[in-house]
Simulated scan of single mutants.
Amino acid sequence: MAIDPGAAEMMRDDLSALDGISEKKMFGGLGFMRGGHMLTGVMSTGALLYRVGKPREAVALALPGVAVMAMADRVMGGFVMLTGEAQADDDSRARLLALALENVSELPPKE
């Protein structure tokens, strides 16, 4: 399944003001990295993916349209997806990105 170009462009726009962002094909989708750590992504289903970390997962899941991320029926702790019409909400995307940035800032540097 191809990556939804509209979802990928939306994520690129949301990340455009940040430095150190790179793209990497992964999980059948597209991952956006910062400092070598996965920050966000676009899944092949068109869902937007955010790596918020387990301590912030409940806060993220309280937002409309946010669900746990699962691959092959396995829940991926600390990752959430924004799906459907909720993706059009700039505030929700900004809040999820802020949670993901906070999470990545707490991770050890990669060499």
Score class of each variant (00 low, 15 high):
G36I: 10
R93N: 06
M38N: 13
G65I: 14
D73I: 01
T83F: 03
S16K: 06
E111T: 13
T40H: 01
I3H: 00
M1A: 04
G53H: 01
M11A: 15
S92K: 00
G84N: 10
N103S: 12
A8K: 02
K54H: 14
V66H: 07
M26N: 10
F32E: 04
L39N: 01
V66W: 08
L101G: 05
T40V: 05
Q87P: 08
L82E: 06
G46R: 06
V66A: 04
E102V: 01
M38G: 07
G65D: 06
D19M: 02
P109C: 09
V68K: 15
M43V: 04
S92A: 14
V66S: 06
E106I: 02
A70C: 04
G77P: 11
L30H: 09
L82S: 09
E23P: 03
S44G: 15
M33K: 10
G29S: 11
V104K: 03
A70W: 02
R34T: 03
G28A: 14
M10P: 02
V52W: 05
L107G: 00
A60D: 02
L63W: 12
V66E: 09
M43I: 00
G53S: 06
G6S: 11
D13K: 10
L63A: 12
L96V: 08
A58H: 11
D73G: 08
R93K: 12
L15N: 00
L18A: 06
A98F: 09
E57W: 10
L107K: 01
